[in-house]
Design a protein around this nucleic acid. Structure first.
Lengths: 244, 244
DNA sequence: CCAAAAGTGTTTCCTTTACACCCATGC
DNA sequence: GCATGGGTGTAAAGGAAACACTTTTGG
């Protein structure tokens, strides 16, 4: 197969797109950026931001381009990673499309930047997506499920969660990110110690956060350290918090 | 982007292929099936088995088809899983090709079945691939590195390693698979106990293996159990064995 | 009886867990 | 002083590592 000389008419043509699951944390709630479709199949359903890969564009660059069209976040504050490729022949009723899905963590994306067109973009809580009440286009529900699970799993043994924050953060803010992402409660003391033990995982900035109006001891501020892996990993225990 | 009506001339056409990393264990050595290219670019270099995805074919089906063309293994003895997608614009000098890579574990593939054509297929030890002495086509070296790491990692917390065996196996055979894959030595007693503790991970067949000619107590035979995850996971320690 | 491989017991060490306690701030 | 959250001490429980020991076969 691979041995024949190539000819434009010799191979089946595919459209290749990228779709990006953009995760963010707003007020201790895990959210994902979705776009409500204005036309075409799955009109009014929610879809992931995405689009065609350009003829000379690398896959990762295409994902980064789509991400930036929606957020205007600077490169260095982004974690962007390939999730997997979805290419069932029936996934788009119009033609054969293979989509390479990516997932990203960006800090504090409150409102997506409005595209010039009238597309309706919104950051939707993950709880709402997981409830199944949202109508999602194509196979985007499966992509979302896979992306959320991948993020939850990767938070166990890497520092990806630092990307939820723009600059520095306190240990309790960091812990809140874990509690929101895993829908669980973590013991503050043990969480603190666990991170201290792994040298270079978090780097102290030397500064302290302004103590909240409610009082309490001011917390030390940290940034992501040079060590990106946590070993042994954190463990997510059973969800304890509100499921409403 | 995704909103426009589609037209064959409206999107950049890509060729989509699958490549499959087929891992197997022969006489306690981890090996991968490679094909020596007879023509085209990278002539005489080694390449992964693969080919075009057909117009109405699912990606996973395409990978399974390519796998079967090389091995004649029955479905149920195979672990097949998507690895990732590689689509750099320069990866194939002839045209824009995006390839979806898969990795598989098959039992005891001593000799690949010869295709009708004169292609030269061989199972190559992983150590040789990792040495960097082999000339590999396209970006297949990167795909191989990623696949080997994925397999090593997945062996820590799942039962994928059971797929190295056709039927039942002893605990020491199972341990040998880990030692070969991780290039390490594992304590026989502790390995045994670890697997016993996780109920349903391995199911005893009730039979015993014929004791080897060298003597020794006959070992109990096991098959993969209903529980596919190992928690807490096994840990790979530093390589101890020969690196020559 | 001896060699060899399978499988079990036992001790030591380390990590996690639970929870009590001290620290530093606002009011 | 008191409430509030940040951070540390500590003891109990659990798993992993090392290694001695018992079991079951072939010669």
């Amino acid at each position: 197969m691979t041995e024949k000389p190539y000819d434009p008419h010799d191979y089946p043509p595919f459209a290749v797109t990228v779709d990006v699951v953009i995760l963010t944390m707003v007020k201790k709630t895990l959210k994902i950026l979705l776009i409500q479709r204005g036309q075409g199949p799955f009109r009014d359903a929610w879809a992931l931001p995405g689009g065609f890969v350009l003829p000379d564009e690398d896959l990762g660059d295409a994902a980064l381009r789509e991400l930036k069209e929606e957020t205007n976040i600077s490169d260095d504050a982004i974690h962007l990673e390939q999730l997997g490729t979805y290419g069932s022949p029936e996934r788009d009723p119009r033609m054969r499309v293979v989509t390479v899905a990516y997932w990203a963590i960006v800090p504090n994306l409150d409102k997506p930047i409005g595209g010039g067109d009238a597309r309706h973009a919104e950051v939707v809580p993950v709880a709402e997506i997981e409830s199944g009440r949202l109508r999602l286009a194509f196979d985007h529900e499966q992509i979302l499920i896979d992306a959320i699970e991948r993020m939850r799993s990767k938070m166990e043994y890497t520092n990806v969660a630092t990307n939820f924050f723009e600059d520095s953060f306190t240990v309790s803010e960091f812990r809140s990110a874990y509690e929101a992402a895993w829908d669980t409660e973590l013991n503050p003391g043990n969480f603190q110690r666990k991170l201290q033990q792994s040298a270079d995982f978090l780097t102290p900035t030397g500064e302290k956060s302004p103590s909240e109006s409610s009082g309490g001891r001011p917390a030390d501020l940290y940034m992501a350290g040079p060590e990106k892996d946590l070993s042994p990993p954190l463990k997510r225990s059973k969800p304890k918090k509100s499921n409403k």
